[in-house]
Design a protein around this nucleic acid. Sequence first.
DNA 1: CTTGCACCTATAGTTACTATAGCATGTATA
DNA 2: TATACATGCTATAGTAACTATAGGTGCAAG
Lengths: 135, 135
Amino acid sequence: MATGKKYTIGKLSELSGCVIQTIRYYEQISLLPEPDRSPRGHRLYNNDLLARLKFILRLRQLGYNLEKTRDLLNIVDGGKYTCQQIKKKTLQHAQTIHDKITDLKKIETELLKMAAQCNDDKGRDCSILDSLFHT
Amino acid sequence: MATGKKYTIGKLSELSGCVIQTIRYYEQISLLPEPDRSPRGHRLYNNDLLARLKFILRLRQLGYNLEKTRDLLNIVDGGKYTCQQIKKKTLQHAQTIHDKITDLKKIETELLKMAAQCNDDKGRDCSILDSLFHT
DNA sequence: CTTGCACCTATAGTTACTATAGCATGTATA
DNA sequence: TATACATGCTATAGTAACTATAGGTGCAAG
């Protein structure tokens, strides 16, 4: 099997949906390895790097921050993991997401409660501002 | 009715629960006005400023960013608002919180679905990584 | 007298990008 | 042949909302 296809950064951007600056940024912080370069000095990517970038983007979509993303990449790169470990980490992350949801729900409830107390007046006597000022 | 009590920034920090640096930061970005100064140049706050700071902190707790916070402060400062307006803004903000909750719930569902597909194996054949790599 | 405390200013660091300036090179067109 | 355009490059600054640090002042207690 010959060497696979090579993409410029523009093509990688197109294929991954990730803007060029972010790709370079991920390289800078070593989430992506330094790719080959053309004689002109342009970055050349292959399918492996495309897959790695997509993996990173998927984790970001799922709310992993870059540190957690790096952590997972290291584990996968090292090859010394068990499916159990990955599951545990996944559930831990799900829990942090769940905690955020809980916080936001509390906030939503408070906001709706405040809004419901409003007499919908055209005046300046505002129960919302009152409760904002006295809590 | 004599002039009210004056607090140093340390006291204001204690009374409000806001750290000193943040108080100075809010002053720097003009969320808080420049307070009086002692002969030594130390900031001196009064109850009005304490109330204003608490109001800001409350909005921050409720998920308002500084721009939205500033917006509300301007409205209150201007005095030209109706209770209706405030209610509308409150409900709009509640909606953005709700949207965040919706996003996070989607993420949580996906994470739990992935975790549920895991065979809990001690091996390296991991369905979670598979789905992460192929989505 | 010197140690400690509370305050001061100005500046840099954090996260995860995003945008800009200024440059090189290859291709398409006038 | 000249020039414009596209694509790439590096380095640096800006964003949000703080947080932390360095270096300095002045007062009071031991």
